Computed example of a mutant assay.
Amino acid sequence: MKTGLFLGLATLDLIYLAGKPPGENQKVVASDCTIAAGGPATNAAVAFSSLGNVAVLGGVLGTHAIAQLIRADLAEYNVRIIDLAPGRSDSPPVSSIIVTEATGDRSVISINATKSQVDSQAIDRDILTSVNIVLLDGHQIAASQEIAQLAQSKNIPIVLDGGSWKPGLEEILPFVKWALCSDNFHPPDCCNSEQVFAYLSAAGIPNIAITRGQKPIQYLSKGSFGSLEVPQIQATDTLGAGDIFHGAFCNYILQENFINALAAAAKIASSSCQFFGTREWIKNLKN
């Protein structure tokens, strides 16, 4: 059993299934609804735990009642929490998500971590005790910089969840061993995948992958380019698929090489898209 630290965003997700998102000044009645803890690092931690590991989430929760809902959900999935701002009284971010029934596409509105940043002093230097792998989602830049330096000093490898570019990430890139990026990840002056690969390679990252939904994953590993087909499914809900991919990757990369870990993680992520919400796939995994 391995232990992973997942540092970044913790939200409460209100997830609705509907025929389509509402237009301007329009109301829509949903056909289903579910509530779960969310955020890239959070969903990745749940996936990592569900695959038989110890997952530790480092994020901002505080004392607000909504934080208790997040804690309760994560306790159900055996995710340990390190609260980076335990005395904070403001609400954690709440995300509202509408999943379109026919396509599984999702529309999301959230404040993310813009109002809940912590500084590097929030990091206990013992946070990496017994940790085998670290995932950073870029939502807590100062804390991530501190963790990255600590991890390097302890030879603990780092995975970057590159969902979108965030100022300050350039300070973290030299510490990253595996960068898993979405098609929407655009570092400064980068407009296409070739430029993204070049930028991240120049920063010293040896293993880079760009996920593109149902299209093949593009990767660059130790100077060699390639592409990897992903399982083709009829999507019910794509919400959190990238996060689940990252959590699964953290599990498999501790057992497999880069390409095999990508393939195994893609299989888990694709499977998750066949279920509404970000948790139902776990029940199927255990059946």
Results as ranks from 00 to 15, higher is better:
Tyr219Val: 00
Val230Arg: 10
Pro231Ser: 14
Asp237Phe: 10
Ser224Tyr: 10
Val176Met: 08
Ile210Gln: 14
Pro40Trp: 00
Val159Arg: 02
Ser272Pro: 05
Val108Trp: 14
Leu51Met: 08
Leu262Gly: 07
Phe197Met: 13
Asn260Glu: 14
Gly277Asn: 05
Ala142Pro: 00
Asp183Ile: 07
Ile208His: 01
Pro86Phe: 10
Leu228Phe: 08
Gly223Pro: 11
Thr236Phe: 08
Ser110Val: 00
Ala263Asp: 06
Gln218Pro: 04
Ser50Asn: 12
Glu194Phe: 02
Leu74Thr: 02
Arg71Glu: 11
Val54Asn: 15
Pro167Leu: 08
Leu69Lys: 15
Glu171Val: 06
Trp178Val: 09
Ile244Cys: 06
Ser224Glu: 13
Ile109Phe: 13
Ser130Val: 00
Ala269Phe: 03
Ser120Lys: 13
Leu160Cys: 04
Val56Met: 02
Ile156Gln: 09
Asn155Thr: 09
Asp13Glu: 05
Ser116His: 14
Leu180Phe: 01
Gln145Ile: 05
Asn284Thr: 12
Leu135Tyr: 05
Asp119Arg: 09
Val131Ile: 14
Ile156Tyr: 04
Val79Lys: 08
Ser110Asp: 01
Pro187Met: 06
Ser164Gln: 12
Asn132Asp: 15
Gln140Pro: 01
Leu160Glu: 03
Ala75Cys: 03
Pro231His: 14
Asp83Tyr: 14
Ala102His: 12
Val46Gly: 01
Lys283Trp: 00
Thr114Asn: 01
Asp13Gln: 06
Asn78Trp: 02
Arg212Thr: 06
Ala41Asp: 03
Ile97Glu: 03
Ser193Thr: 09
Ser95Glu: 06
Ile259Pro: 04
Ile109Ala: 08
Gly204Met: 07
Phe275Asn: 08
Ser130Glu: 11
Leu7Trp: 13
Ile210Ala: 10
Ile253Ser: 13
Phe48Ser: 09
Thr129Pro: 00
Asn53His: 11
Ala45Gly: 03
Lys283Val: 00
Ser107Trp: 15
Asp124Cys: 07
Gly39Asp: 10
Leu12Thr: 03
Val118Tyr: 03
Val79Trp: 02
Trp165Pro: 06
Pro22Arg: 14
Ala67Asp: 02
Glu76Ala: 15
Ala263Leu: 02
Gly59Thr: 10
Gly213Thr: 06
Leu285Tyr: 05
Asn78Asp: 07
Ser107Val: 11
Glu146Tyr: 15
Ile127Leu: 15
Gln234Ala: 11
Gly168Asp: 05
Pro21Phe: 11
Ala235His: 11
Ile109Gly: 01
Ile244Trp: 02
Ala203Trp: 14
Ser144Ala: 15
Ala265Ser: 12
Val46Met: 10
Thr63Ser: 04
Gln149Cys: 12
Lys154Tyr: 07
His64Tyr: 13
Ala151Ile: 06
Leu173Tyr: 11
Val46Glu: 04
Asp161Tyr: 08
Val108Ile: 14
Ile210Tyr: 04
Ile208Leu: 10
Gln255Gly: 03
His139Tyr: 07
Asn155Ser: 15
Thr34Met: 09
Ile133Asn: 07
Ile205Trp: 09
Ile109Ser: 07
Phe245Lys: 04
Thr3Pro: 01
Ala10Trp: 00
Arg279Thr: 00
Ile210Glu: 12
Lys154Cys: 11
Leu5Val: 05
Ile268Cys: 11
Ile210Thr: 08
Ile70Gly: 02
